[in-house]
Design a protein around this nucleic acid. Structure first.
Lengths: 352, 352
DNA sequence: GTGAAAGCGCTAACAG
DNA sequence: CTGTTAGCGCTTTCAC
């Protein structure tokens, strides 16, 4: 029997061929059964599936991918998974992906464009069906844009975008949410409001700064350059920023932070300087990570539904994979202001 | 020319064949060049690489994997990526993997054994070379063990293990570290010490409880069942636990928590009850996540080097992939006690 | 409904 | 040192 010799060869892995022989049908039939093709009668299906189970068959996606040019994988690029806000988004994305039986390659770029590009190149070699990414600070827009287009690789940006309107994007409404937050501080009587975490190399940085500026503008307050602190979004950076701000001749009475992580550093520095957060200096964050509501005082922040971002990002990617040439979609999700002890501001603020 | 017809067919993807034709060599030669085989003279290499670059060649790992039965991928199972401690470990693992040009499939099980098993099954289909995992609470040991053995799949457990000595494991020394922490509380004069986060379904839960019990034993203090609170490791669970403990006729003067996340909830509840953490009630955590040192009061905890765990886990996996049948390795990493405001205890405690 | 055959793009003997 | 050849395990026309 030639069947036996075929069965014995190779790596010992059970293949469609083995099942076909055991079930007395052809390889093609087994393949169709595996993908639940309706053309196969139930009787055959059950038989084949039973044999497959008995033999301990494992579907080989490397082989299938080679044939179909599709892998049911995506590259998940995150600029910092250590940031709790992004960890939550990643968790949401992963769950949404698994619901459509996709799986993600994880690429933590650590906000380094080179590592990011290296990862994307690898993703191409692995034939991912798409990319979900929060781009690293300092990403070269033209370089990335050109690569993605060359590859014709479906790509959805989340939380940060590239300022490249041809790509899908889902994120929060940074400008309006930060305008509302700053407006709240103004409404509470603050006039010297610092902004910590200026970072023009990322879209969310530009947008939140824009919202801050717009709110001051609306209130007729001139921008004070000494109240703008440029730095990355880490706790120590927030801490240092405060040390600088408090040495000013006319120090701020409120500090709007780019995000919560930064705000934690800021609050700690204020307290260590012997001042009371929320009394002597108001502090606001952004993202509303879980810890925000647990601090003493609790942090006033802008809540963003991470699960919604994750779900929507996956949804957009699915659409994009279905039709690469459809018009791009930008989905802005409105945040909600969470006023807490660190900055007692009115929730219904003057800005829409 | 038959070459031309070959060049034109298919999906349009550039293959070794195209490069071979352009460079005037055979496909095999190009393949060797791609993998930097020393048998090929530099002259040929440069020529081939140049052509490949010109044509925009992308190495196809689906094809290579089918042939070699190796993918340079691993399945990274994490029971909760939203826990900052594990997010840090994941970041470390990912970086270590990329240094050996491996890439990870991310599988957040959400502490659900079924999701975990589904992910592992998928990983088999994707032909991963190995698995790194922190198993979900309630994982069926025999079931997992049997699957892993059946697949002969290299697997390293990190932070949590299966109590299956045949598998590699890297994690902190839970028993001795928790014994030291509890010993510290005893040394500070506490006699009613609660343990919040009892969870016998995970190894770290059993081990930390064991350390706690051992310390009390050594001090000749009987275990008070009402001071043991079973719950998962979330902030709200910690919060609720305190509400129960404070209603006790003889409430604890110190609370040892299973981990920092739980401790945050515990501290918040204590403060909301009008008590002072570190003065009225001492609190200790475990893991020493970044936030621990930033709270007011700062959290006394056991610091574990996450980067070391990540690096070591990858190292162990590499060894295991090299030799599946080598004897198993268990690597315990010693933590360091970080005494802070939430529990003023001596760092040099009586327990080794 | 099911089978035969071709081939996805790569690697690994084995010749030469 | 380079070319020829035979698959890896799957999917997919196209016949029957």
């Amino acid at each position: 029997m030639t069947g036996d010799s075929q069965t014995t060869r190779g790596t010992g892995r059970i293949t469609l061929q083995h099942i076909a022989e055991a079930a007395g049908v052809s390889r093609a039939t087994v393949s169709l059964v595996m993908r639940d093709n309706p053309a196969i009668p139930k009787r055959t299906k059950v038989l084949v599936l039973e044999k497959a189970d008995q033999l301990g068959y494992i579907y080989n996606r490397s082989a299938a991918s080679l044939r179909t040019h599709s892998t049911r994988t995506v590259g998940l690029v995150v600029h910092d998974i250590t940031n709790p806000y992004f960890a939550e988004i990643v968790a949401g994305i992963q769950q949404s992906l698994s619901q459509i039986s996709f799986v993600a390659f994880l690429g933590d770029s650590g906000d380094c464009p080179d590592r990011q590009m290296a990862f994307l190149n690898l993703m191409q070699e692995y034939n991912v069906d798409g990319i979900l990414m929060s781009p690293a600070a300092g990403t070269n827009r033209e370089h990335l844009r050109q690569k993605l287009k060359l590859w014709r690789l479906p790509c959805v940006f989340y939380s940060r975008h590239l300022d490249a309107p041809e790509f899908d994007y889902v994120g929060c409404d940074n400008v309006s949410d930060m305008r509302r937050l700053t407006g709240g501080l103004l409404g509470a009587g603050h006039r010297r409001i610092a902004f910590v975490g200026v970072n023009e190399t990322i879209s969310s940085g530009r947008e939140r700064l824009e919202g801050y500026v717009a709110a001051l503008d609306l209130a007729g307050i001139a921008l004070a350059p000494e109240l703008l602190v440029s730095c990355p979004s880490t706790r120590p950076d927030g801490y240092q920023a405060v040390q600088r701000l408090l040495q000013l001749p006319d120090p701020p009475t409120a500090i709007a932070c780019f995000n919560d992580v930064l705000a934690f550093g800021v609050m700690l520095a204020i307290q260590n300087a012997g001042l009371r957060v929320g009394e002597d200096v108001a502090v606001t964050g952004f993202d509303d990570v879980v810890e925000a509501s647990l601090w003493r005082p609790a942090l006033t922040s802008n809540h963003v539904a991470t699960d919604e971002i994750g779900r929507e990002a996956v949804q957009l990617l699915v659409e994009r994979m279905r039709n690469y040439d459809a018009p791009p979609v930008r989905h802005l999700i409105n945040g909600t202001l969470q006023a807490r002890g660190s900055a007692r501001i009115a929730t219904g603020s003057p800005v829409p």
